[in-house]
Design a protein around this nucleic acid. Structure first.
Lengths: 239, 239
DNA sequence: CCCTTAATAGTCATTCAGACTATAAAAGGG
DNA sequence: CCCTTTTATAGTCTGAATGACTATTAAGGG
């Protein structure tokens, strides 16, 4: 089958599915919606929807992101395509090909402000039970990708507000990876990477309570981490 | 738009496009097909085709790979999904959503053996001129991805035959990255990474001509490289 | 006032990568 | 048959980066 010509083709429904992550109370949360209708009525699912005739998958994903979170401005948020799921039986009703995205939000916004229903909820990743369709797998793939990209990109700042402390940045890594990092070493590594963060001149923040106030930083211009910030290997790596 | 329900949807044509890479005469080559019909008649393009009603994108990609290369067994070949391209105007005839894949072949097979036409050709990556549709971008994205994955995965062995020398493995890196690596250091790194390669007991190969015969290795069981094998930074990286 | 907490500064040792030299084992050319 | 070329393999040395620590500073709370 060469090119697109000289063969009939089947039409498919194309959707986007979103794994929207945020950090809340030191735990990774994901945005889920409750399904009202069959199939999987009552089950939780990733937010998503059909592509409109004139929009790309990226445009549709950002539109869905705005609709589901109620945020009026989602232009600055990190949104990245994960992969496309196209197993023939992934939707019992019909043939649906879904382009999955991952989105990262700094502060979890209050939901259902301007949206049409009350079924969206932030759910801790670990308790995101069995989801509808193949969304368990999509969600797991999304989490794996995010964790891996923390190692060699500056993605972690996408979880942080415009100004943040190094302690907050470190908590992003610790929460997503589920590990504990040495604070002085983390600080040394981040500051030694040019363009990762830049200091806010005179500012310091009382981080809520006790302790010495921390300096504030902004996300830098760099996008990749060279050399990477590797997570500690799960167990004794041979040699 | 919550879930898939309660909204009409537009049907789309869904295709797969393949960026099939191989190494030939020390240069990265890609498999291209010549388009016979409009649009872009006479232009070269990535091989691809429509999804059949009962197959996933992965299945379709592997089927196309077999058809275009004429290989009877493509089960062992590395095939990986890249991303999905869905800009509304990417095909002037109709709305086509395309799932792009990258494939890696060890030895470039002779083409058009059992296939239906004579328009497929191995083309050096650097001379892969302007392609049809958005295939220039897909091809560039594929190359970027392959180069990046060489750093932190064992992907390089997918370019090699079942048994290969460390010199051949090093040439994969040098060709894809366009750099020159230090041979003793490369050897030390590869052998120090458990599971990357395993020695073939008593074998050595005359690598074609002069020089000391090299020991033969097989691909190991590892899939990731920890720590990664970083390519030399393009220019003086600050600090 | 002392204790706790958290941020920041620094030290030390080990590991790892880059640059380099040396040796071994083949082919080819006079 | 020696000598050069070529390629594989072994090993050395140095500096950078990291992991594991200790120390100091600046806040809040009893």
């Amino acid at each position: 089958m060469r090119g697109y010509d000289k063969h009939a083709f089947e039409p498919f429904a194309v959707t986007v599915d979103l794994a929207v992550f945020t950090l809340r109370a030191g735990a990774l949360h994901v945005l889920l919606v409750e399904r009202a209708q069959e199939p999987y009525a009552g089950r939780w699912a990733l937010p998503g929807g059909f592509l409109l005739p004139t929009e790309s998958a990226e445009t549709a994903a950002r539109r869905e992101l705005a609709e589901e979170t109620g945020l009026t401005d989602v232009t600055g948020l990190h949104l990245e395509q994960l992969r496309t799921y196209s197993e023939p039986d992934r939707d019992p009703r019909m043939r649906v090909v879904s382009v999955a995205f991952a989105a990262l939000l700094p502060d979890p916004p209050e939901l259902r402000a301007g949206t049409d229903a009350a079924e969206a909820r932030w759910t801790p990743y670990d308790t995101a039970g069995p989801l509808a369709f193949d969304h368990d797998r999509i969600l797991a793939d999304a989490r794996t990708r995010i964790g891996a990209k923390l190692e060699y990109t500056c993605l972690a700042t996408a979880f942080c507000p415009p100004e943040f402390t190094l302690g907050e940045l470190q908590q992003v890594y610790e929460t997503v990876w589920g590990t504990v990092l040495d604070r002085p070493n983390f600080r040394r590594k981040v500051l030694a990477t040019p363009g990762f963060v830049e200091a806010v001149p005179g500012a310091a923040r009382l981080t809520g309570g006790r302790g010495k106030p921390a300096a504030l930083y902004r996300a830098g211009t760099a996008t990749a981490l060279h050399p990477p910030l590797l997570r500690p290997p799960p167990e004794g790596r041979p040699a």
